[in-house]
Nucleic acid binder design. Structure first.
Lengths: 244, 244
DNA sequence: CGCCAGGTTGATTTCGCTCAAGCAATGTGG
DNA sequence: CCACATTGCTTGAGCGAAATCAACCTGGCG
């Protein structure tokens, strides 16, 4: 899943497996070479900030390995995680497209490698290849839909169901399947952050996790989680009886 | 506030006051004339659907008078209001830009006049005037921010504070100021819909409203609402003592 | 070893949901 | 014009869920 982009030294975007599934796939070889020459690859430690709210937007970022998250806070100092980012995801494109300051902060969740693309470089590529603009338009529209879905879920589901849904989403990106069909993964987030994503307190999440274990939906141990019947996850919501 | 676009017959976009504050302001006179010739203006009754989830996107809409809302539902049939639209707002541009089916439904809240712009017409204008694309890019980014803010509020605020915030936002668009500095307005939404916007039940909202009246923050009577100290609305959250 | 951050657990109170009844405004058919 | 249903809203009682405050555990880490 978390493939390294051209090896530990970040040799070239040309050999980056992730490119095929990212917005950059519409670039031709020459343009990719240009991108490769001008991007800067860098390691981040766990918890390290990538950019902060209110900063000017100097460029955009492309996840190579590891995971990162978008965190936004309100006036009273409360913060919530809005999104988890995986290898291949681009990050911070909005501030660059609109020449605005950062509206949210981003931070590495675990040790990560992330490429940085300078604003002028990005602009040059956009000007040379109109398909790239279209890609980012699609991207922002998809993000929009995600945010709207998130809103509807938060408005209609119980905390338990919100968490099951979150678990399902995280599994789809970062999970692995065992030989018996069950799935497992390392959660990229602390309990606190998981709780903030569904809008509850970490104590409450702790109890929700307890209930899910009682119901046999999943087993938790530290940050590792096993799900017995991953395909039944979303059907299980509010109806644990469905788990035979 | 709700100015008619060129009179009851919708004479021309050229004389539409709202145009100056909408995405269309970047069009020159000739382009505006083209838009004017090709748009269709229509009346909607209260509650009438403008478009529904899953429909193909034939074009976009421009609010002339009245109010409308975006409603989205999840798999279980629960629905929530995501946004209220006022004169001058464009609506449904995303499906058109991306050639996708509608991801949500829109409906008139009260009697409204709304212009319809066909997809080919919109495309032609986008091709002729690149500034229009930029306008819509800004627009989608702004919508994105709004959705993110909404998410953070829903995750961190109490139901009471969420409602106060919603009240504040509605006041800013549709309210009028009285001689004594207090503000009042006709709520465009039913209690049910207000409740769905903050993710709670209508009974609960009813009690929240009762508490706001007790605290002297606002007075409600049917759909009319008076706010004594509008500037203090957001400071009042969770601290009713601040109201002298 | 003490300290700390992250996590769990418990006790208590507050809050919100559910179900149910009541009420006012509106509409409808006789 | 009245009986009657309908719709939107409010109110109440009971209950379950979640917030809060606090204690305690655990695994690093100086």
């Amino acid at each position: 899943m978390a493939r390294q982009c051209g090896g530990a030294l970040g040799v070239s975007c040309l050999s980056c497996q992730l490119r095929q599934h990212s917005e950059w796939r519409v670039l031709n070889e020459e343009e990719t070479r240009f991108l490769s020459r001008n991007r800067k690859s860098r390691e981040y430690r766990a918890g390290e900030s990538i950019f902060a709210m209110g900063e000017p937007s100097h460029g955009l970022y492309c996840m190579v390995s590891g995971t990162a998250a978008i965190r936004k806070g309100d006036a009273e100092g409360n913060t919530a995680l809005l999104r988890v980012l995986y290898p291949g995801d681009t990050l911070g494109y909005r501030g660059v497209l609109l020449d605005e300051k950062r509206r949210y902060g981003a931070e590495a969740l675990g040790p990560s490698r992330i490429c940085f693309i300078d604003k002028p470089v990005f602009r040059a590529l956009l000007a040379r290849n109109p398909a790239l603009s279209q890609q980012f338009l699609h991207r922002i529209a998809k993000d929009m839909d995600e945010a709207h879905d998130h809103l509807v879920r938060n408005a209609t589901l119980s905390n338990r169901d919100k968490f099951v849904h979150l678990l399902h989403a995280l599994m789809n990106r970062g999970g692995s399947t065992a030989t018996d069909g069950s799935r497992f993964m390392e959660l990229p987030l602390s309990r606190r952050d998981l709780a903030s994503m569904i809008g509850t307190r970490h104590e409450t999440l702790s109890r929700i996790i307890g209930r899910l274990e009682e119901d046999g939906v999943a087993r938790f141990s530290g940050r590792t989680v096993h799900v017995r019947k991953p395909h039944a996850l979303l059907q299980v919501m509010q109806r644990p009886a469905l788990l035979d």
